[in-house]
Lab assay of single mutants.
Amino acid sequence: MLYVKVKTEDGEELVLEVEGMTEDEIREELAKAGFKIEEIEVYEVEP
């Protein structure tokens, strides 16, 4: 499983499960949803 931890400019932290997306695609999708991203951390969790 691939997850991203996202910190927004307003200090909110989100953890999202993503599969088959690049970091650029993740940033693009979050921007479309109205999030202003300060930091993204991508990590993989073994089942």
Rank of each mutant, 00 (worst) to 15 (best):
M1K: 15
M1W: 11
M1I: 13
M1H: 13
M1T: 13
M1P: 15
M1N: 10
M1V: 14
M1A: 09
M1E: 04
M1C: 13
M1F: 11
L2T: 07
L2K: 14
L2V: 08
L2A: 06
L2N: 08
L2S: 11
L2Y: 14
L2F: 14
L2H: 14
Y3K: 15
Y3G: 10
Y3N: 13
Y3M: 15
Y3L: 15
Y3C: 15
Y3D: 03
Y3S: 13
Y3V: 15
Y3P: 03
Y3A: 14
V4E: 01
V4Y: 05
V4W: 05
V4K: 00
V4Q: 00
V4D: 02
V4F: 05
V4R: 00
V4N: 00
V4G: 00
V4A: 04
K5R: 07
K5A: 02
K5Q: 03
K5L: 06
K5T: 08
K5C: 10
V6C: 10
V6Y: 06
V6M: 05
V6F: 12
V6A: 03
V6W: 05
K7C: 13
K7F: 13
K7G: 03
K7N: 04
K7E: 05
K7R: 10
K7P: 03
K7M: 13
K7W: 13
T8I: 05
T8L: 14
T8E: 01
T8R: 05
T8W: 07
T8Y: 07
T8H: 03
T8G: 07
T8M: 14
E9F: 11
E9W: 11
E9C: 14
E9T: 12
E9V: 12
E9N: 08
E9D: 08
D10Y: 07
D10V: 04
D10P: 01
D10H: 09
D10K: 07
D10Q: 07
D10F: 09
D10S: 12
D10A: 09
G11Q: 02
G11N: 03
G11M: 02
G11P: 00
G11K: 01
G11D: 02
G11W: 01
G11C: 10
G11V: 01
E12S: 12
E12Y: 13
E12I: 14
E12C: 15
E12L: 14
E12V: 12
E12N: 08
E12H: 11
E13A: 05
E13N: 05
E13W: 15
E13Q: 08
E13Y: 15
E13S: 08
E13I: 15
E13F: 14
L14R: 06
L14I: 11
L14K: 04
L14E: 02
L14S: 02
L14M: 09
L14N: 01
L14T: 03
L14G: 01
L14W: 14
L14D: 01
L14Y: 13
V15Q: 04
V15M: 09
V15P: 00
V15I: 13
V15C: 15
V15L: 12
V15G: 02
V15E: 05
V15K: 04
L16K: 01
L16V: 05
L16P: 00
L16W: 12
L16Y: 12
L16Q: 01
L16G: 01
L16H: 01
L16S: 01
L16F: 14
E17M: 15
E17F: 15
E17S: 10
E17V: 15
E17Q: 14
E17H: 14
E17P: 07
E17D: 04
E17Y: 15
V18N: 00
V18L: 06
V18Q: 00
V18A: 03
V18Y: 14
V18F: 15
V18E: 00
V18K: 02
V18R: 04
V18W: 06
V18T: 03
V18H: 01
E19A: 11
E19W: 15
E19Q: 13
E19I: 13
E19Y: 15
E19T: 15
E19G: 11
E19S: 14
G20A: 05
G20I: 04
G20H: 05
G20Y: 07
G20D: 04
G20W: 12
G20R: 08
G20P: 03
G20N: 08
G20C: 07
M21S: 05
M21R: 10
M21L: 10
M21D: 02
M21E: 03
M21Y: 10
M21W: 08
M21I: 06
M21K: 09
M21G: 06
T22Y: 03
T22P: 02
T22H: 03
T22N: 06
T22F: 03
T22K: 03
T22M: 04
T22E: 04
T22D: 05
E23D: 05
E23K: 08
E23P: 11
E23C: 14
E23H: 07
E23R: 10
E23T: 08
E23I: 15
E23Y: 13
E23S: 09
E23V: 14
E23A: 12
D24R: 10
D24A: 13
D24M: 10
D24Y: 08
D24L: 09
D24Q: 13
D24I: 08
D24H: 09
E25G: 04
E25T: 04
E25N: 04
E25I: 03
E25Q: 09
E25S: 05
E25R: 05
E25H: 04
E25P: 00
I26Y: 01
I26T: 01
I26F: 03
I26H: 00
I26D: 00
I26N: 00
I26C: 04
I26Q: 00
I26W: 06
R27N: 02
R27I: 10
R27K: 08
R27E: 02
R27W: 07
R27V: 07
R27M: 09
E28K: 11
E28L: 09
E28C: 07
E28G: 07
E28R: 12
E28P: 01
E28Q: 10
E28N: 11
E28F: 11
E28W: 10
E28I: 11
E28T: 09
E29L: 15
E29A: 14
E29Q: 11
E29Y: 15
E29G: 06
E29S: 12
E29P: 01
E29H: 12
E29C: 15
L30W: 03
L30E: 00
L30I: 03
L30R: 00
L30P: 00
L30T: 01
L30M: 06
L30K: 00
L30G: 01
L30A: 02
A31W: 06
A31K: 08
A31S: 10
A31I: 12
A31P: 01
A31E: 10
A31Y: 09
A31V: 13
K32A: 07
K32C: 09
K32Y: 04
K32N: 06
K32T: 04
K32V: 03
K32S: 05
K32W: 04
K32R: 10
A33Q: 12
A33F: 11
A33V: 06
A33P: 01
A33W: 13
A33S: 06
A33D: 03
G34T: 01
G34W: 02
G34R: 02
G34Y: 02
G34A: 01
G34M: 02
G34K: 02
G34L: 02
G34E: 01
F35A: 01
F35N: 01
F35C: 11
F35E: 00
F35G: 01
F35S: 01
F35H: 04
F35P: 00
K36D: 07
K36H: 07
K36Y: 06
K36P: 05
K36R: 08
K36S: 07
K36G: 05
K36F: 06
K36E: 06
K36M: 08
I37R: 06
I37D: 12
I37P: 13
I37M: 10
I37W: 12
I37Y: 11
E38H: 12
E38G: 08
E38A: 13
E38L: 15
E38T: 14
E38W: 12
E38Q: 12
E38R: 12
E38F: 13
E38C: 14
E38V: 15
E39P: 01
E39I: 14
E39R: 06
E39T: 13
E39G: 09
E39K: 07
E39D: 11
E39Q: 11
E39S: 14
E39N: 10
I40C: 03
I40S: 01
I40V: 05
I40M: 08
I40F: 10
I40E: 01
I40Q: 01
I40N: 01
I40P: 01
E41A: 06
E41L: 12
E41N: 08
E41W: 15
E41Q: 09
E41D: 05
E41C: 13
V42T: 05
V42L: 07
V42D: 02
V42I: 14
V42P: 03
V42W: 13
V42H: 04
V42M: 09
V42S: 04
V42Y: 09
V42N: 03
V42R: 05
V42C: 06
V42K: 03
Y43N: 03
Y43A: 04
Y43Q: 04
Y43T: 07
Y43M: 10
Y43S: 06
Y43H: 05
Y43G: 04
Y43P: 02
Y43W: 11
Y43L: 09
E44A: 09
E44T: 10
E44H: 12
E44I: 12
E44K: 07
E44M: 10
E44G: 06
E44N: 09
E44F: 12
E44L: 10
E44D: 12
E44V: 11
E44P: 12
V45K: 10
V45P: 08
V45I: 11
V45A: 09
V45N: 09
V45D: 06
V45W: 11
V45H: 12
E46L: 13
E46C: 15
E46T: 09
E46Q: 12
E46P: 13
E46Y: 15
E46K: 11
E46H: 12
E46D: 11
E46R: 07
P47W: 05
P47E: 07
P47R: 06
P47N: 07
P47S: 10
P47K: 08
P47Q: 07
P47L: 09
P47A: 08
P47G: 08
P47F: 07
P47V: 08
P47H: 07
P47I: 09
